[in-house]
């Protein structure tokens, strides 16, 4: 068993995979989790610093697999970055409660459970830091993203409550709220926009549409001891979208 690890979910995704590389390059031991096991293997199979946990983190089975991978590869969790998730855009009239349940489960339900696990006496690590991911959609009134926005707003409530509970143990919880970042997730809905709408979206981000690196950098900062006096915050990381 090595030292402590950082768990990154959504590790096969646009932002998560970049964060894993960044943290591994800094010398950390990473447990990379994603439902897409094949892609995890493809990305990190050859990297000895990255242990892989394939499974749906919202299921008991996926959760247990993750805990087993952590136990097999480290002596505890000093960092947790939750980037697993999806969006299911639909106008209000077509939004479905079951879609909201699935969104809430992955964006807020799983981190609630995992932070609960981290909070237990046997698992607590002083100095540990967690980073959840909200979205500009939770702040700005994103048409066509009502269910996703509601799930992301839940993430911010969770961030503050968990930060308050964990601060006495020297553990921190923060979130990042990105604007539009160029990944598979955003391409799935920007692909439904016409040229005019795409131009408006680009214009709404004065510093340009985000790259996974720009969000991973903010998350890496919050995970690091450089952010040791920051907890319970949601850092907006949106290229000026909210200005």
């Amino acid at each position: 068993m090595d030292g402590f690890c950082t768990v990154v979910t959504g590790a096969a995704g646009g932002i998560g995979s970049v964060l894993v590389r960044r943290l591994a390059a800094g010398g950390g031991k990473i447990v990379a989790a994603d439902i897409d096991g094949a892609r995890l293997e493809q990305l990190f199979g050859a990297d000895g610093r990255v242990a892989r946990s394939a499974g749906d983190v919202t299921t008991d089975e996926g959760f247990e697999t993750l805990l087993r991978t952590i136990a097999d590869n480290s002596c505890g969790v000093c960092g947790f970055a939750h980037f697993a998730g999806f969006d299911a855009p639909a106008p209000l009239a077509l939004a479905k409660p079951e879609t909201f349940s699935a969104l809430a489960a992955v964006h807020a339900g799983f981190p609630l459970r995992f932070l609960g696990w981290m909070s237990k006496k046997a698992n607590r690590v002083r100095g540990a830091s967690a980073v959840l991911v909200s979205s500009a959609a939770a702040h700005g009134g994103a048409k066509g993203h009502a269910a996703y926005s509601a799930a992301k707003a839940a993430v911010e409530g969770l961030t503050r409550a968990a930060a308050a509970e964990l601060a006495p143990y020297g553990m921190r919880v923060n979130a990042v709220a990105p604007g539009v970042v160029d990944t598979e997730l955003s391409r799935a809905w920007t692909g439904k926009l016409d040229k005019e709408q795409l131009d408006a979206l680009a214009k709404a981000h004065p510093l340009g549409i985000g790259t996974p690196d720009q969000v991973a950098a903010a998350a890496a900062f919050l995970l690091s001891p450089d952010a040791s006096w920051i907890t319970g915050q949601t850092i907006v990381c949106d290229g000026g979208f909210s200005l």
Binding site: P89, A90, P91, L94, G144, K192, L193, D194, E196
Partner: peptide, 9 residues
């Protein structure tokens, strides 16, 4: 355009 988006969804 929202109606167009709704048709696609």
């Amino acid at each position: 355009s929202m109606k167009g988006f709704a048709l696609l969804v």
